[in-house]
Each structure stands twice: as C-alpha cells, then as structure tokens.
Design a protein around this nucleic acid. Structure first.
Length: 440
RNA sequence: GUGGCUAUGGUGUAAUGGUAACACUAGAGGUUGUGGUCCUCUCGUCUCGGGUUCGAUUCCCGAUAGUCACCCCA
C-alpha cells in the first residue's frame, strides 16, 4: 500500500516537470562515440590537403546575403528558398552560408590573394546551412570539408583536384566509389546547348511525364535526369552537351580526361551530370558511392568556376574546387561497420575510500597524468566494489587503492587487475613504480 | 514546398480498448575495504494536443518530429 502511494507521488512530481526543449528541426548532436569517426575523417583529410600544399582557411558562417545571390546564383534553389537569412538590428541583410566556395572567393578577393604566388591553394571545413526538408543524411546544418585552387586554368589542375578527392576517400577506406564527370562548357556553349535541348524535347513533348513538361522551360538540363521510363527513353537519344562544347571547352575537357587516364582514376562520363550552382563552368564532377541497395549516393562534388571571382568583383581568376559532406562520409563509414574502438582505456585506475583518501587521490591523479600515464578515477563513487567495476570497464592494468589506513600511512595498494596480486607501495615512489611496471 | 509511411524506457524491439513485456546499456546493492561471471532492485508524462468511449498507449483528427518519394543537393 505505501508503495503504491509513493509511486503516485512520484508521478505527480513528474507531471510538474517543465517540458524539455527540443533540438531545432534538421539539426543534430554529434556525441562522443561518433566524434571518433569525425576526427578520423577530418584528420586524414587535413593531412592529405597539407601534403598537397593546401593551406587552411576559415571564413565566417555569416556573410552578406548578396554574396550568395551573386555568387551561387539568384535563381538557384539554394538561394531562392533554402537560405537561413535575416536582418540584423543594424539593418544588414545576412545569411548563414549554404556552401563554402562563395565565402572563400570573397576572402580571396578581400585579402588580396591575387598578389600571392599563384596558384593559391586553400582548404576549409565547417558547418553549412540549408533550409531544406530533412531526410536521412541530409540536415539543415551539415558539415563540408572542401578545397579550392585559385589562379590556374590548366586542365591538369582539374585532374589534380579530382585526384586529391579520390585519394581522400581511398585513405578513409571508402573504396567502392566512382567519379562521375561531365563538362558543362562555358556560358556561351552552355546556353546554346540549352536551346538545342529544348528544341529536341519540344518535338517529343507528348512522350514526357507531367513533371518534365513543367520543367522544360525552367530547367531543361534536368529532364535528362528524370527517372520515368518514358522520359529516360527520350533522353537516350537527346543531344549531349559534350558534343556541343566550343573548341576551348572541348579541348580542356579532353585534357582533363587524359590526365585522369594517366593517373589511373576510373571515371564515368555522365552527360547528365549538371550541378545546381550557377557558378560552375567546364569541368563538373561528383563522387558517388555504390551503396548496399545497389543504388548510388553522392558523397561530394565539385568543379571549375572560372568566372566566379570576377563576378564577385575580383580580377578574372580561374578556379577549381571540391567539397564533400562530412555527415555522409561518416555515415558511410559507420554503415561499413568501421569501428574505432571507443573503449576508454586507462592504464591506471584510482580507487578511494573515505574523505582523506579522496584528497590524496586528487594530487596523485595530477602527478600520474603529468608523467604521461592515462588515469581513471571515480571520485563521486562510494563503494570499492563499484570503483573496481569501473577500473575493469576502463581496462586498467592497475588499480591504486587508497583507504583510510593507507592515507594515514602514506602508502598505496597496487592491485594488478589481471592477476589480482596486491602490493603496498610508499606514496612517494608510486609514480616511478607505475612507470616501471607499465613499461614491462 | 507536395505526397506516402512511422512515433512505446538511455538504445533496440513486443503486446494490448481496461496504465505496458523482453534484451542490451546505465545506476544501486548482494552484510563490515576488492572488479570481470552470476543474482536482486531501480530508471517509461506509451511524442504533444484534441475527439470517440464507462475507460485509450491501443480507434479518429490535428500538431510536432523522423523517414521515404518528388525536388534539390552535401
């Protein structure tokens, strides 16, 4: 009977609890176990970028909205409806960056990097924001790692960027990938091609699905990518952009592919690959991974953007870049069962009994850490039993036990966790003793 | 933004128109200062808000979130 009453009281108390505040839609917490994978991904990527001569740059998350309107393109989906934009108290119109390149270009211009020795090679990482409908592997705040090369228009640079992208994934252990590549030409040949494509589809408009009929005007390039069977049939004989590139664009693309052949990177010519940001020209590519269901998912993408620097008010500067989604890469690694052992390992574990002992532990902990020994403790715990359980969980080789008696005698019990053998050691020599034992 | 599906302890899963079962994890303990096995106990506003009902976690509606497709991309 009293127990029932108690439960009721507990329930009443619970009711009064204020409701918890939830995470914002499309946002995600990255907890310690997952951080290991993040570190793995980012550290390897940074290392490779540095090996390739890239310097790290960090630009602000907030930029003027205008930067993205001009840079990414006013009519792109990203700018039109996917930006987190707001006005400050000072009436500045700002946006949280939806991608990294525009900010880098701004920094390139603003810091006078055109007078640095060319090419300028930069890499970056950080959160990006897009107001989209969240889905698996697709968040409103997501992270990109990317790198850009400014000031060199040679096709070799394109292939170097692709090579580095490829290499990063190889290094990370994501091997079942392929490079989807295409050239979308320069402004001139692209608009000519668009017209050609529209003409082609106009003739077959009756064979298209509803969506494609609608898209014909707004985004003709997208029709090539439709998954309706009847549209796919029409697409197979549609004109391909690589057949309609101007001579310089054509040669450039040919060179890129030759370089890729040379460094033995397998790529897939994908005439339907069109990227959603306006600033791209010539080479565009994506890195796709073959997933377990037999489909493919995009891990990252990039391309050349020779006119962007000028569009944002700088001198005419060719550039290429690539970026990948850290979440997607992490998830890919996770689904492969790549497990970085998240066992927290502590060589030595300190067990304390009583207040006096607890005080001694604090200093001992510090000394041991200073001599590069990993130490665990559980100051908040009372019983020796639970503390030794912790020691076991931490895979400790030794437990150092200090109780009331030891605190007074200035001694420590050294317990070998494997054999269970115990020995009393004088406090002053414990650090030395531990060092010695851990070596052997 | 449009449409479909889903929503149960920290996690992963059950069952049910009469307040919830199991596994794992976590915490406390299994007599006085000793771990890994074992045992016991503890941890659920059944997402939220309405409605139907004597009664709803279970049915209906709405909200929210997740998820899938479109769209777009990382």
């Amino acid at each position: 009977m009293p127990r029932v009453k108690k439960q009721l009281e507990v329930k009443k108390k619970r009711r009064k609890k204020t409701s918890p505040i939830q995470i914002v839609k499309g946002m995600k917490d990255i907890l310690p176990p997952e951080q290991l994978l993040w570190d793995y991904v980012l550290e390897n990527s940074r290392k490779l970028c540095q090996d390739f001569g890239f310097g790290r740059i960090e630009t602000p998350i907030l930029e003027r909205t205008e930067l993205f309107q001009r840079g990414v393109g006013d009519n792109t989906d990203i700018v039109e409806k996917e930006m987190f934009s707001f006005e400050t108290q000072g009436k500045d119109k700002l946006s949280m960056r939806p991608e990294g390149t525009a900010g880098l270009v701004r920094a390139y211009i603003e810091n006078g990097m055109s007078r640095w020795s060319q090419p300028v090679k930069l890499y970056y990482e950080g959160p990006m924001f897009r107001y989209e409908k969240p889905q698996a592997g697709r968040y409103r705040q997501f992270h990109q790692f990317g790198f850009e090369i400014f000031g060199d228009e040679d096709a070799a640079i394109d292939s170097q960027v692709i090579y580095l992208a490829w290499k990063i994934f190889q290094k990370l252990g994501i091997k079942d990938i392929n490079i989807q590549i295409n050239s979308i030409g320069c402004v001139e040949c692209r608009s000519a091609y668009k017209k050609l494509l529209q003409d082609y589809y106009e003739m077959k408009i009756n064979k298209l699905c509803m969506d494609c009929k609608r898209r014909l005007d707004s985004n003709p390039l997208r029709l090539l990518d439709c998954k309706e069977e009847k549209c796919m049939q029409v697409a197979t004989s549609a004109p391909q952009i690589i057949d309609h590139l101007c001579v310089p664009c054509h040669d450039h693309f040919k060179n890129v592919l030759e370089f890729l052949d040379e460094i033995e990177i397998t790529y897939v010519l994908n005439s339907r690959l069109v990227r959603g940001l306006d600033y791209y020209s010539k080479t565009v590519f994506e890195v796709w991974e073959n997933n377990s269901e037999g489909g493919q998912s995009s891990l990252g993408g990039g391309g050349r953007y020779d006119s962007l620097v000028e569009m944002l008010g700088g001198e005419e500067t060719p550039a290429v870049g690539f970026s990948f989604g850290v979440e997607r890469v992490v998830e890919s690694l996770f689904s492969k069962g790549i497990q970085l052992n998240y066992s927290i390992k502590k060589e030595v574990f300190l067990v304390q009994l009583g207040d006096k002992a607890r005080k001694k532990i604090l200093r001992l902990f510090d000394k041991l850490v200073d001599s590069n020994i990993t130490v665990g403790e559980s100051l908040g715990r009372g019983s020796i039993k639970s503390q030794l359980r912790m020691a076991n969980k931490f895979n400790s080789k030794f437990a150092l036990i200090i109780g009331q008696k030891e605190a007074l005698d200035n001694t420590v019990i050294v317990r070998d966790m494997e054999s269970g053998m115990q020995e009393v050691v004088v406090m002053d020599s414990i650090v030395k003793e531990m060092k010695k034992r851990l070596k052997g």
